[in-house]
Design a protein around this nucleic acid. Sequence first.
DNA 1: GCATATTTGTCCGTATGTATA
DNA 2: CTATACATACGGACAAATATG
Lengths: 227, 227
Amino acid sequence: MIGGAIAETEDQPLTEQIAGKIREMLISGELSPGAKLSEQQIAGQFGISRNTLREIFRLLTSQNLLVHLPNRGVFVATPGEAAVVDIYRVRHVIQKGAVQAAVPSHPALRRMREQLAQTGRAREAGDWRRVGTINMEFHRSMVELCDSARLSACFDLVLAELRLVFAQFEDTAHLHEPYIALNAELLASLEAGDIDAASRQLDTYLLRSERSVLAALQRRQVSGVGG
Amino acid sequence: MIGGAIAETEDQPLTEQIAGKIREMLISGELSPGAKLSEQQIAGQFGISRNTLREIFRLLTSQNLLVHLPNRGVFVATPGEAAVVDIYRVRHVIQKGAVQAAVPSHPALRRMREQLAQTGRAREAGDWRRVGTINMEFHRSMVELCDSARLSACFDLVLAELRLVFAQFEDTAHLHEPYIALNAELLASLEAGDIDAASRQLDTYLLRSERSVLAALQRRQVSGVGG
DNA sequence: GCATATTTGTCCGTATGTATA
DNA sequence: CTATACATACGGACAAATATG
């Protein structure tokens, strides 16, 4: 019995299944940034062949989640300060375009309203990991105001990378808590069709968020990795 | 002697080499949009194994140049009108961000000035394929005003796709010729630090360019593929 | 600095399921 | 409906590069 290790898990290709699992492990912090991913070990761990795993590595590398060093292997990406600065530049440009394209009747706004409510409930429950996840989905929905699949895909990449940054911290509460209120104001402006106000509020949000993420990164480097 | 087919071609990994070659064939139109890429045939053509080729296919698929249909194989992407509309939305958002971030002393502006001159020379020489290539590099340089590697990478993807659109046409002269003058005006505004004028000129450029590409696509569908 | 062990890069052959003629 | 072709996935092999003692 050769290929029968996993058979009853939907009709999705095996590569997609495992790629999704590894992606989950990456953004959940289960695989520490900088860690080397041995082909033999990971392949054995998931019960797949090295060839199949290498295809998966290529996928995740193209999504900036893994780094490929020729003849040395693949490693979990370690987004540092430079990456954070770059990521927030991307966010600034794309999300600025999103608020500029916003129309009050756009379905993405309804989704954002829902996600905002979910964020509030998660905060009350003290589930900060969930707060972070929903917060990112909130901003993802915002980008959908552009009605561009490619722009959303690009944004998804940087959000996944940003999660990799957050995965380096233990306490992420202070990285999300202060910004729920800002999100609420921003959404209200969008719903009211006040583009200028929304644009200013977005600037405020991104500036503060970037600063706190950078500060957290620097704290981490001083106090030790501890992962 | 097993892996010694290609040895004296730099120290670049084989996958990167072949991926580059196939990418060249795609954007040059050598591989027609919609064509099926058989693993066996392509692998034999380049003298590589199917395993290696599959890794390459994953790479090019993640760059929107190939389309992967599970259990059916990979095909050259056929960007249609919907893709063009989407691509120009991306261009609008990103390039708008670029002109907004422009400062007259930025080195990218010098590169754009050079490329504009090259475009003029290529036009005089009647080399329209080169005009198109340099024109795209001109806009690529513009995006570098953002100083964001990720934004540039995202932009590269849509430009590569756009080349796939152009690859469906035989005559691309009228798709580039009228816009050299617009590029010159836009660059002059950027060099003068007149963001507002540059922003308006960018809108004009993108609107007209998108319209002419869409029109060419529709003409193609009427008159037949002819590949 | 060198010999050795490990790992990557790439190949081949083969079995199995899915799509198409 | 059967048969063929092909994509998917497996395992094993070996050279070259890298890491290790």
